[in-house]
């Protein structure tokens, strides 16, 4: 069994090293350590289920070790910047004031097509419009446009925007949902009053939402369905 522990440790370390060497491009949305755990857990979990001859305790021990290591590693990532950089790498600026940082691009092994595609997915079609583009540790690209290219906001125009909050579902499929009442400042009595004023019964309503300002949206249940 000690061999299992050693093997689990060795596999954990080797896969982490390999994934760090592979870099961000192949990893996608998961952090390297999360990917390692995801792959290993699914693989190991299948063994005792599909191979009767195989040991049952061994995969359990391995799973516990890997999950523990993942939690320990993620806690250490939270606590130590050095460890975080070691495990997850750094976010890297690849475009600065409309200029591509070619050294970083080479280092990340991004192609120009990869960058242009990632920018297009962010609705950016001109590199010169970008103030900063950052390759995140999970391989995604974050983009900040130059001030003159950013969308006009109410803050820019100094316009006061009322906060209506989130429309809360108060009736769903004919049933009153009280869990979100607090969110929209509603009470059961107030809802009954509202329904009476609309001339509706809960059982006739498919969906009813109310926001903080008291705006009501109702979809009636279709009959004959």
């Amino acid at each position: 069994m000690l061999i299992v522990v050693i093997r689990a440790l060795v596999i954990f370390v080797i896969l982490n090293i390999l994934l760090r060497i592979m870099g961000k491009r192949q990893i996608g949305q998961l952090q390297p350590i999360e990917l390692v755990i995801t792959i290993l857990l699914s693989e190991i979990s299948v063994q005792p289920l599909t191979q009767y001859e195989a040991s049952f305790v061994t995969p359990i021990i391995t799973l516990v070790i890997l999950v523990s290591l993942e939690i320990i590693a993620s806690t250490l990532c939270m606590k130590s910047v050095t460890f975080r950089n070691l495990m997850q790498g750094n976010s890297l600026i690849i475009i600065r004031n409309g200029v591509l940082d070619q050294a970083q691009i080479k280092r990340l092994r991004f192609t120009l097509d990869d960058i242009l595609e990632a920018l297009r997915k962010k609705d950016v079609f001109r590199i010169e419009d970008v103030q900063y583009a950052i390759a995140e540790t999970d391989g995604s690209l974050s983009v900040l446009l130059k001030p003159e290219k950013r969308s006009f906001t109410k803050e820019d125009g100094k316009i006061n925007a009322p906060d209506y909050g989130i429309p809360s579902v108060v009736v769903s499929d004919g049933k009153i949902i009280q869990s979100d009442f607090k969110e929209c400042g509603m009470t059961y009595e107030k809802l009954v009053q509202k329904l009476n004023s609309l001339g509706k019964r809960p059982e006739d309503i498919m969906l009813m939402t109310i926001d903080k300002a008291g705006n009501v949206f109702v979809i009636d249940k279709e009959k004959n369905i």
């Binding site: 516990v64 290591l69 939690i71």
Partner: peptide, 8 residues
């Protein structure tokens, strides 16, 4: 997780 690891 530390306890789990140690016990295993």
């Amino acid at each position: 997780s530390l306890a789990m690891l140690a016990s295993v």
